[in-house]
Every structure is written in structure tokens, then in C-alpha cells.
């Protein structure tokens, strides 16, 4: 594959909607040929996609979903999870875990991490109805703690899929909590509609905050954002959308096409001619 084609195909992979990576891959194979070297060349993009999208997997012999991300990657390329005390090898192309081993958390923040794991599990069961997964990990230099949460809902038979991701960083030395929340929804029945959102959040916790307090702060930021997002849907529907195209003309009647020649631009509908506004004419209604 030429460097140009590889870059294009890699960008397609990174842009794949939730739950549709395999479909995008199949399309790329149809365009470029499905020989083994193609997948080999695309593996770095697939790995980046999996880690960015917080792909989750059930470990062999396990029951819970564990996350694969940049935050729980070990120097040897394996991944670890605190709650199940496991580490595993991960094949990014097949999204399969193998060679599970026992993992022992070694961190000066082990106490807060372990107590946060329990609170986080309750938070997930209370607020994430669909295929949720989460993880809490010490950073490589053991200075901060990462909290990541993902909720997925796949409904390809109804042509829609969605993903919620929360990424938080907590610094126990000064109590600062920073994070990013991202929502991605795709609807594609005879069309292609995508909701993509991104919100940065910041909060300050007291010194010596417990694991439960950390999760409580994460939950509060998520809730605040979700309520704002819901308000924005209403605002867009009532404002921006209505300002683009009316449901019916001001007369509240469909056009009489037999008499289209007798309509006069801007004159029969109250108010003057109005090219760029949108709402002024409504004021002229009698």
C-alpha cells in the first residue's frame, strides 16, 4: 500500500462509529484488497482506535468487561485491571484477550484506588444500563490516578449505535480532578446522522479525598454535563432547527400549486421581504 493510501485507510479506521469498526474494515478491504499485509499495515490504526474508544473485553474465564486503553497498558504491551487483579495480552485486530495472569497493584495510591473501584462499580450499575465498563489505574510514574468509564449500546438491526466515554485524571497531591466526557451516536437508516460531543470538566476535591469522594465527584460532573446536553437538544430543536425551515408557511396551509403564479414574494404572508432573518415574518401574522 502506498503511504498515501495507508494514511487514508488509517483515518477511515479512526473515524469508525461505535460498534462499526468491522464494517469499515470490510469496506476498506473491498477498496484495497483483503490480503494479509493490508491488515498488518492497518494494525497501528486499529490499536489506536481500540485504545481511544475504550474497547472492552470479557477475559477468558472471567465474567466482567475490562477496558483496553492507554491508561492501563503495561510496558510489555499487556493490559491490566485492578478489580479483577488480572493482566492479559490483547490482539487488537481480533479484539481477543489471552494469556491472563494475576496482576498485583503496586502503587502508593493503592488504598484510594481500591476503595474507588468498589464505589465505581456501584456508580456503573446505577447509571450505565448498557454494556458498561470502567477502570481505575495509577499513572506510569504513580503521580496521578486515571478513571475511565465507557457505556456502549449497539442496535445495528435498527441502524443506530452509541457510546459514552468519560476520562478523568485525579491528582491526590493537590486534589485536582480534570476530565473529558465524549458522546458519539450514529443513526444510519437511509442516511447518516452523527452526534459528536466533547466537554472538558474540572473540579477540586479536598486534601486526602477518599475513593468514594473521588467517584462521587466524577458522578456529579457526568450528571451536570448530561443535564446540560439534554437542555441543548431542546434549545436546538426549538431555536436553530425551527429557524432553518418552517413546518408550514405562515398561512398554516400547504401551497396551492395551481395558483402558484398569484403568490407574491414576501407580500401575501404579512411583513416585508426578509431574506436572511427567519422569524421577522411571524411577527406580521394577524
Amino acid at each position: 500500500m502506498s503511504p498515501e493510501a495507508l494514511e487514508i485507510a488509517s483515518n477511515f479506521i479512526l473515524d469508525a462509529p461505535p460498534g462499526e469498526l468491522q464494517d469499515v474494515r470490510a469496506d476498506i478491504e473491498s477498496l484495497l484488497g483483503d490480503d494479509a499485509s493490508l491488515i498488518e499495515e492497518l494494525t497501528p490504526a486499529i490499536e489506536q482506535y481500540n485504545k481511544e474508544q475504550l474497547v472492552s473485553v470479557v477475559l477468558p474465564g472471567g465474567s466482567q468487561r475490562v477496558i483496553v486503553s492507554e491508561y492501563n497498558e503495561l510496558p510489555d504491551g499487556r493490559y491490566f485491571d485492578v478489580e479483577s487483579q488480572s493482566s492479559w495480552a490483547f490482539d487488537h485486530v481480533t479484539q481477543k484477550a489471552s494469556a491472563v495472569q494475576t496482576y498485583t497493584l503496586e502503587s502508593k495510591h493503592a488504598d484510594i484506588i481500591k476503595s474507588a473501584v468498589r464505589s465505581l462499580s456501584t456508580h456503573l450499575s446505577e447509571h450505565y444500563p448498557a454494556l458498561p465498563s470502567s477502570g481505575i489505574y495509577p499513572s506510569t510514574d504513580d503521580s496521578t490516578i486515571a478513571v475511565v468509564i465507557v457505556g456502549n449500546k449497539y442496535s445495528p438491526s435498527n441502524f443506530w449505535n452509541g457510546r459514552w466515554r468519560s476520562f478523568f485524571q485525579f491528582d491526590p497531591s493537590n486534589g485536582s480532578l480534570t476530565g473529558t466526557i465524549k458522546v458519539d451516536v450514529h443513526y444510519y437508516e437511509d442516511g447518516n446522522v452523527r452526534l459528536l460531543t466533547k466537554k472538558s470538566v474540572e473540579a477540586q476535591l479536598g486534601s486526602g479525598a477518599s475513593g468514594a469522594e473521588l467517584v462521587k465527584a466524577v458522578a456529579a460532573e457526568e450528571k451536570k454535563y448530561q443535564e446540560e446536553l439534554n437542555r441543548e437538544f431542546v434549545k436546538l430543536a426549538e431555536g436553530t432547527f425551527k429557524g432553518l425551515r418552517r413546518q408550514l408557511p405562515v398561512t398554516r396551509q400547504k401551497i396551492d400549486w395551481e395558483k402558484i403564479g398569484t403568490y407574491k414574494l414576501g407580500q401575501d404572508i404579512g411583513g416585508g421581504r426578509n431574506n436572511d432573518g427567519g422569524k421577522d415574518n411571524e411577527c406580521g401574522r394577524q
Binding site: 446505577e126 447509571h127 450505565y128 444500563p129 448498557a130 456502549n152 449500546k153 458522546v183 448530561q226
Partner: peptide, 11 residues
């Protein structure tokens, strides 16, 4: 779109 978000996370 709003319903799907509510399916992902419940307020």
C-alpha cells in the same frame, strides 16, 4: 439521538 444518549447513561 437524545433517547440513545439516555440508553447509554441514565441521569
Amino acid at each position: 439521538a437524545k433517547d440513545v444518549v439516555a440508553d447509554l447513561r441514565s441521569v
